[in-house]
Amino acid sequence: MPEAFLILILFQLVGSALQTVLHLPVPGPVIGMFLLAAALLWKRSRTRTDKPASSFDSPALSSLSRSLIACLGLLFVPAGVGLVTQMPVLLANGLPIAVALFGSTLLGLMVTAFVMHKATRDRPSPERIPDTGGQVL
């Protein structure tokens, strides 16, 4: 568990350092995310499945990341409450905000799904609808 948390923090640190040094437009934690994904895939491509898992790509890292992602919503609350300081801006722009949020979200959904639907050659996999208890990832 401490090692798993260390891995997340270290990759965030490296990502943030790269962003500062190279003046990248991508935020540090996002760079860290892609670096960690690449590192995991590289490690897995070198590890045979019958060998024990390495200390780096550990079940602890999986369970920690699952816990963090499961309470992702909670992590948005402190910044979200900042909405109270934005009330004058929100109310002054009520109509554009409501229309843009609704229209843009709907357009984004439809365009993404339509392009994916048209460009996918093979047939869709059969539908399975289990209830995973609301667990996201």
Binding site: F5, L8, I9, F11, Q12, G15, P27, G28, P29, V30, G32, M33, F34, L35, L36, A37, L40, L41, R44, L61, S62, L64, S65, R66, L68, I69, L72, L74, L75, F76, V77, P78, A79, V81, G82, V84, T85, L137
Partner: peptide, 28 residues
């Protein structure tokens, strides 16, 4: 004031960074 509240709960906000890095696992 919001500033006082945010100061109190900024540890929750800080965890957004590691949580973003954690998205690497489902991605991989």
């Amino acid at each position: 004031p919001y500033g006082t509240y945010f100061q109190s709960v900024k540890i929750i906000n800080f965890l957004l960074g590691p949580a973003t890095v954690a998205l690497a696992i489902p991605l991989a």
